[in-house]
């Protein structure tokens, strides 16, 4: 069997790609097609953790239900009680000069 010239083979490949509607890329250049063809991963990523129920979310969904989160109420009440006894968190410093760190003795 006689060998076929490379140019003829190239022509054949080009014709074949036209006929079968495939891409003709003889130099194997990167076209970036894989970034478009790949499925989007985001939606399945969001499903990984189970949905968390929270009082605020339920109250938002069902307007007028107004469920009370007892733990949260207790926490807020504790903060108020502590403040009354002068045990609250210190005020935030407005500048670096009034920070508690700056007032500390060396």
């Amino acid at each position: 069997m006689a060998s076929v010239a490379p140019s003829r083979l190239a022509t054949l490949a080009r014709l074949r790609s036209v006929i079968f509607q495939t891409s003709y890329n003889p130099t194997s250049q990167r076209t970036g097609a894989k970034y478009l063809k790949r499925r989007l991963r985001g939606p399945s990523m969001m499903d990984y953790y189970p949905q968390q129920l929270s009082f605020s979310a339920i109250n938002k969904e069902f307007k007028g239900l107004d469920l009370i989160d007892e733990d949260e109420e207790q926490r807020l009440q504790d903060i108020v009680d502590k403040k009354k006894r002068g045990k609250g968190a210190p005020k935030k410093a407005k500048s670096a000069a009034d920070s508690r760190r700056a007032q500390r003795k060396r």
Partner: peptide
């Protein structure tokens, strides 16, 4: 995960352009 969902399409578009040798 939320950030990936929000930006995935735009990132893909830029990736396509940046990696396209043509």
């Amino acid at each position: 995960r939320q950030g990936v969902v929000d930006n995935e399409i735009a990132r893909r578009a830029y990736l396509y352009v940046a990696r396209n040798q043509t």
